[in-house]
Design a binder for these strands. Structure first.
Ligand code: MN
Ligand code: MN
Ligand code: MN
Ligand code: MN
Lengths: 121, 121
DNA sequence: GCCTGAATTTAGCCATGGCTCATCTTATAC
DNA sequence: GTATAAGATGAGCCATGGCTAAATTCAGGC
Protein backbone atom coordinates (compact mmCIF):
# COMPACT_ATOMS: atom_id res chain seq x y z
CA UNK A 1 0.00 0.00 0.00
CA UNK A 2 1.21 3.47 -0.81
CA UNK A 3 -0.45 4.99 2.19
CA UNK A 4 1.19 2.46 4.49
CA UNK A 5 4.56 3.80 3.43
CA UNK A 6 3.51 7.41 3.82
CA UNK A 7 2.17 6.76 7.31
CA UNK A 8 5.14 4.87 8.70
CA UNK A 9 7.53 7.34 7.12
CA UNK A 10 5.69 10.22 8.76
CA UNK A 11 5.38 8.47 12.10
CA UNK A 12 9.13 7.93 12.08
CA UNK A 13 9.63 11.54 11.15
CA UNK A 14 7.41 12.81 13.96
CA UNK A 15 9.14 10.62 16.51
CA UNK A 16 12.50 12.01 15.42
CA UNK A 17 11.49 15.64 15.34
CA UNK A 18 8.69 15.86 17.91
CA UNK A 19 9.68 13.04 20.18
CA UNK A 20 6.38 11.28 19.61
CA UNK A 21 3.74 10.63 16.98
CA UNK A 22 0.26 11.86 17.88
CA UNK A 23 -2.78 11.20 15.77
CA UNK A 24 -3.60 14.88 15.55
CA UNK A 25 -0.22 15.61 13.95
CA UNK A 26 -0.48 12.71 11.52
CA UNK A 27 -3.88 13.97 10.43
CA UNK A 28 -2.64 17.52 10.05
CA UNK A 29 0.48 16.65 8.08
CA UNK A 30 -1.39 14.28 5.81
CA UNK A 31 -4.26 16.67 5.25
CA UNK A 32 -6.78 14.16 6.48
CA UNK A 33 -9.37 14.12 9.27
CA UNK A 34 -8.49 12.62 12.62
CA UNK A 35 -10.93 9.73 12.33
CA UNK A 36 -9.40 8.86 8.96
CA UNK A 37 -5.91 8.86 10.42
CA UNK A 38 -7.20 6.78 13.30
CA UNK A 39 -8.69 4.17 11.06
CA UNK A 40 -5.50 3.89 9.06
CA UNK A 41 -3.39 3.56 12.18
CA UNK A 42 -5.70 0.76 13.28
CA UNK A 43 -4.94 -0.99 10.01
CA UNK A 44 -1.21 -0.42 10.46
CA UNK A 45 -1.49 -2.01 13.88
CA UNK A 46 -3.51 -4.93 12.54
CA UNK A 47 -0.77 -5.48 9.95
CA UNK A 48 2.03 -5.25 12.48
CA UNK A 49 3.64 -1.95 11.52
CA UNK A 50 2.81 -0.01 14.68
CA UNK A 51 1.66 -0.48 18.22
CA UNK A 52 -0.79 1.88 19.82
CA UNK A 53 -2.96 1.99 22.87
CA UNK A 54 -6.07 4.14 23.20
CA UNK A 55 -5.32 7.80 23.84
CA UNK A 56 -1.58 7.26 23.66
CA UNK A 57 1.00 8.05 21.03
CA UNK A 58 2.01 5.66 18.27
CA UNK A 59 5.14 3.53 18.05
CA UNK A 60 6.71 1.70 15.15
CA UNK A 61 7.41 -2.01 15.40
CA UNK A 62 10.63 -3.42 13.99
CA UNK A 63 8.73 -4.12 10.82
CA UNK A 64 7.32 -0.59 10.73
CA UNK A 65 10.74 0.89 11.34
CA UNK A 66 12.38 -0.94 8.48
CA UNK A 67 9.57 -0.03 6.11
CA UNK A 68 9.91 3.59 7.22
CA UNK A 69 13.64 3.55 6.66
CA UNK A 70 13.31 2.06 3.21
CA UNK A 71 10.55 4.51 2.30
CA UNK A 72 12.53 7.52 3.46
CA UNK A 73 15.59 6.42 1.61
CA UNK A 74 13.63 5.99 -1.60
CA UNK A 75 11.78 9.26 -1.08
CA UNK A 76 15.00 11.19 -0.49
CA UNK A 77 16.71 9.67 -3.48
CA UNK A 78 13.84 10.56 -5.79
CA UNK A 79 13.77 14.06 -4.34
CA UNK A 80 17.49 14.61 -4.78
CA UNK A 81 17.29 13.20 -8.27
CA UNK A 82 14.58 15.68 -9.28
CA UNK A 83 16.64 18.55 -7.93
CA UNK A 84 19.66 17.25 -9.80
CA UNK A 85 17.87 17.40 -13.14
CA UNK A 86 16.78 20.96 -12.56
CA UNK A 87 13.30 20.68 -11.08
CA UNK A 88 12.34 23.34 -8.55
CA UNK A 89 12.24 22.53 -4.87
CA UNK A 90 8.45 22.86 -4.65
CA UNK A 91 7.80 20.60 -7.58
CA UNK A 92 10.44 18.11 -6.44
CA UNK A 93 8.66 17.88 -3.10
CA UNK A 94 5.26 17.30 -4.66
CA UNK A 95 6.34 14.90 -7.39
CA UNK A 96 8.65 12.82 -5.20
CA UNK A 97 5.74 12.17 -2.83
CA UNK A 98 3.97 10.27 -5.59
CA UNK A 99 6.82 8.94 -7.70
CA UNK A 100 8.59 7.31 -4.75
CA UNK A 101 5.96 4.56 -4.69
CA UNK A 102 6.43 3.55 -8.31
CA UNK A 103 10.17 3.31 -8.91
CA UNK A 104 11.90 -0.05 -8.92
CA UNK A 105 15.36 -0.70 -7.56
CA UNK A 106 16.72 -0.63 -11.08
CA UNK A 107 15.31 2.83 -11.74
CA UNK A 108 16.55 4.09 -8.39
CA UNK A 109 20.04 2.99 -9.35
CA UNK A 110 19.78 4.91 -12.59
CA UNK A 111 18.66 7.96 -10.59
CA UNK A 112 21.64 7.54 -8.30
CA UNK A 113 24.01 7.50 -11.27
CA UNK A 114 22.55 10.78 -12.48
CA UNK A 115 22.95 12.35 -9.06
CA UNK A 116 26.55 11.20 -8.91
CA UNK A 117 27.49 12.56 -12.28
CA UNK A 118 25.82 15.90 -11.63
CA UNK A 119 27.67 16.08 -8.30
CA UNK A 120 30.96 15.65 -10.06
CA UNK A 121 30.13 18.28 -12.67
CA UNK B 1 -8.17 9.30 -11.02
CA UNK B 2 -5.20 7.22 -12.12
CA UNK B 3 -7.38 4.43 -13.36
CA UNK B 4 -9.41 6.82 -15.50
CA UNK B 5 -6.27 7.65 -17.43
CA UNK B 6 -5.24 4.03 -17.80
CA UNK B 7 -8.67 3.07 -19.08
CA UNK B 8 -9.09 5.82 -21.67
CA UNK B 9 -5.52 5.35 -22.81
CA UNK B 10 -6.13 1.66 -23.33
CA UNK B 11 -9.51 2.17 -24.99
CA UNK B 12 -7.86 4.53 -27.45
CA UNK B 13 -5.12 1.99 -28.02
CA UNK B 14 -7.57 -0.83 -28.67
CA UNK B 15 -9.56 1.26 -31.10
CA UNK B 16 -6.38 2.07 -33.01
CA UNK B 17 -5.00 -1.44 -33.11
CA UNK B 18 -8.10 -3.63 -32.97
CA UNK B 19 -10.61 -1.31 -34.53
CA UNK B 20 -12.80 -1.41 -31.44
CA UNK B 21 -12.64 -1.58 -27.66
CA UNK B 22 -14.40 -4.58 -26.13
CA UNK B 23 -14.80 -5.09 -22.43
CA UNK B 24 -13.18 -8.49 -22.57
CA UNK B 25 -9.99 -7.00 -24.00
CA UNK B 26 -9.92 -4.18 -21.50
CA UNK B 27 -10.25 -6.69 -18.69
CA UNK B 28 -7.56 -8.92 -20.10
CA UNK B 29 -5.04 -6.14 -20.74
CA UNK B 30 -5.62 -4.59 -17.34
CA UNK B 31 -5.47 -7.88 -15.50
CA UNK B 32 -8.89 -7.40 -14.01
CA UNK B 33 -12.16 -9.33 -14.10
CA UNK B 34 -14.81 -8.42 -16.64
CA UNK B 35 -17.30 -7.19 -14.07
CA UNK B 36 -14.65 -4.90 -12.64
CA UNK B 37 -13.89 -3.47 -16.07
CA UNK B 38 -17.60 -3.08 -16.66
CA UNK B 39 -18.13 -1.13 -13.48
CA UNK B 40 -15.25 1.17 -14.27
CA UNK B 41 -16.51 1.79 -17.79
CA UNK B 42 -19.90 2.69 -16.29
CA UNK B 43 -18.10 5.29 -14.19
CA UNK B 44 -16.24 6.59 -17.22
CA UNK B 45 -19.57 6.98 -18.97
CA UNK B 46 -21.14 8.69 -15.99
CA UNK B 47 -18.22 11.12 -16.01
CA UNK B 48 -18.44 11.77 -19.74
CA UNK B 49 -15.27 10.07 -20.96
CA UNK B 50 -16.90 7.30 -22.98
CA UNK B 51 -20.20 6.28 -24.49
CA UNK B 52 -21.36 2.70 -24.43
CA UNK B 53 -24.55 0.82 -25.04
CA UNK B 54 -25.29 -2.60 -23.58
CA UNK B 55 -23.46 -5.42 -25.33
CA UNK B 56 -21.72 -3.06 -27.72
CA UNK B 57 -18.17 -1.79 -27.91
CA UNK B 58 -16.94 1.33 -26.17
CA UNK B 59 -16.27 4.74 -27.72
CA UNK B 60 -14.37 7.74 -26.41
CA UNK B 61 -16.07 11.11 -26.20
CA UNK B 62 -14.15 14.24 -27.15
CA UNK B 63 -13.29 14.61 -23.52
CA UNK B 64 -12.16 11.00 -23.31
CA UNK B 65 -10.07 11.34 -26.43
CA UNK B 66 -8.17 14.36 -25.21
CA UNK B 67 -7.50 12.75 -21.86
CA UNK B 68 -6.28 9.64 -23.68
CA UNK B 69 -3.98 11.69 -25.89
CA UNK B 70 -2.52 13.57 -22.95
CA UNK B 71 -2.06 10.36 -20.98
CA UNK B 72 -0.33 8.58 -23.84
CA UNK B 73 1.97 11.47 -24.43
CA UNK B 74 2.98 11.58 -20.79
CA UNK B 75 3.32 7.82 -20.62
CA UNK B 76 5.53 7.71 -23.70
CA UNK B 77 7.72 10.51 -22.49
CA UNK B 78 8.31 8.86 -19.13
CA UNK B 79 9.03 5.57 -20.88
CA UNK B 80 11.52 7.10 -23.28
CA UNK B 81 13.14 8.97 -20.43
CA UNK B 82 13.69 5.78 -18.45
CA UNK B 83 15.27 4.12 -21.45
CA UNK B 84 17.45 7.17 -21.98
CA UNK B 85 18.93 6.90 -18.49
CA UNK B 86 19.77 3.25 -18.93
CA UNK B 87 16.81 1.38 -17.48
CA UNK B 88 15.89 -1.91 -19.15
CA UNK B 89 12.87 -2.13 -21.42
CA UNK B 90 10.93 -4.36 -19.02
CA UNK B 91 11.50 -2.13 -16.04
CA UNK B 92 10.80 1.00 -18.07
CA UNK B 93 7.45 -0.48 -19.06
CA UNK B 94 6.50 -1.35 -15.51
CA UNK B 95 7.75 1.83 -13.83
CA UNK B 96 6.37 4.22 -16.44
CA UNK B 97 2.91 2.75 -15.90
CA UNK B 98 2.95 4.07 -12.36
CA UNK B 99 5.21 7.10 -12.58
CA UNK B 100 3.24 8.67 -15.45
CA UNK B 101 0.47 9.63 -13.02
CA UNK B 102 2.72 11.53 -10.64
CA UNK B 103 4.92 13.74 -12.77
CA UNK B 104 4.13 17.42 -13.19
CA UNK B 105 4.62 19.39 -16.36
CA UNK B 106 7.80 20.83 -14.93
CA UNK B 107 9.29 17.41 -14.30
CA UNK B 108 8.25 16.21 -17.73
CA UNK B 109 10.14 19.10 -19.25
CA UNK B 110 13.23 18.14 -17.30
CA UNK B 111 12.81 14.57 -18.59
CA UNK B 112 12.53 15.89 -22.12
CA UNK B 113 15.78 17.81 -21.74
CA UNK B 114 17.55 14.63 -20.66
CA UNK B 115 16.16 12.72 -23.62
CA UNK B 116 17.32 15.46 -25.96
CA UNK B 117 20.83 15.59 -24.64
CA UNK B 118 21.21 11.82 -24.70
CA UNK B 119 19.93 11.82 -28.29
CA UNK B 120 22.60 14.27 -29.27
CA UNK B 121 25.33 12.28 -27.57
C1' DG C 1 -34.14 -20.99 -37.60
C1' DC C 2 -31.96 -22.88 -33.52
C1' DC C 3 -27.92 -24.21 -30.35
C1' DT C 4 -24.32 -23.09 -28.06
C1' DG C 5 -20.44 -20.73 -26.34
C1' DA C 6 -18.56 -16.27 -25.64
C1' DA C 7 -19.39 -11.73 -23.97
C1' DT C 8 -21.84 -8.90 -21.00
C1' DT C 9 -24.50 -7.69 -17.20
C1' DT C 10 -26.51 -8.26 -12.49
C1' DA C 11 -26.19 -9.21 -7.77
C1' DG C 12 -23.76 -9.22 -3.85
C1' DC C 13 -19.72 -9.37 -1.34
C1' DC C 14 -15.08 -7.11 0.55
C1' DA C 15 -11.03 -3.70 1.61
C1' DT C 16 -9.23 0.87 1.49
C1' DG C 17 -9.52 5.44 2.32
C1' DG C 18 -12.24 9.41 2.70
C1' DC C 19 -15.91 12.31 5.41
C1' DT C 20 -19.14 14.36 9.45
C1' DC C 21 -21.22 14.41 13.79
C1' DA C 22 -21.34 12.83 18.32
C1' DT C 23 -19.18 11.05 22.39
C1' DC C 24 -15.65 10.01 25.50
C1' DT C 25 -10.89 10.66 27.81
C1' DT C 26 -7.29 13.16 29.37
C1' DA C 27 -4.52 16.75 30.70
C1' DT C 28 -4.21 21.25 32.36
C1' DA C 29 -5.39 25.53 34.23
C1' DC C 30 -7.46 27.41 37.86
C1' DG D 1 -10.49 18.99 42.98
C1' DT D 2 -13.03 20.36 39.03
C1' DA D 3 -14.24 22.66 34.55
C1' DT D 4 -12.89 22.86 30.11
C1' DA D 5 -10.65 22.26 25.84
C1' DA D 6 -7.95 19.32 23.09
C1' DG D 7 -7.33 14.85 21.45
C1' DA D 8 -9.05 10.35 20.42
C1' DT D 9 -12.84 7.15 19.40
C1' DG D 10 -17.19 5.53 17.69
C1' DA D 11 -20.97 5.36 14.54
C1' DG D 12 -22.39 5.70 10.19
C1' DC D 13 -22.12 7.30 5.72
C1' DC D 14 -19.87 7.39 0.71
C1' DA D 15 -16.77 6.36 -3.59
C1' DT D 16 -13.45 3.51 -5.79
C1' DG D 17 -11.82 -0.64 -7.23
C1' DG D 18 -11.49 -5.38 -6.54
C1' DC D 19 -13.79 -10.31 -6.58
C1' DT D 20 -17.17 -14.58 -7.61
C1' DA D 21 -21.36 -16.70 -9.07
C1' DA D 22 -25.37 -16.50 -11.73
C1' DA D 23 -28.24 -14.82 -15.35
C1' DT D 24 -28.73 -12.81 -19.77
C1' DT D 25 -27.80 -11.57 -24.53
C1' DC D 26 -25.68 -12.16 -28.90
C1' DA D 27 -23.39 -14.10 -32.86
C1' DG D 28 -21.79 -18.00 -35.71
C1' DG D 29 -22.18 -22.64 -37.06
C1' DC D 30 -24.99 -25.97 -38.46
MN1 MN E 1 7.27 9.50 1.30
MN1 MN F 1 4.28 9.28 -0.81
MN1 MN G 1 -0.52 4.78 -19.18
MN1 MN H 1 -0.70 3.95 -15.59
Amino acid sequence: MESTEDYVELIDDLIRTQGEARLVDLAERLGVSQPTAGKTVARLQRDGFVTSEPYRSIFLTERGKSLADAARERHDLVYRFLLAIGVSQDTAERDSEGVEHHVSEETLQAFQRIINSSDKA
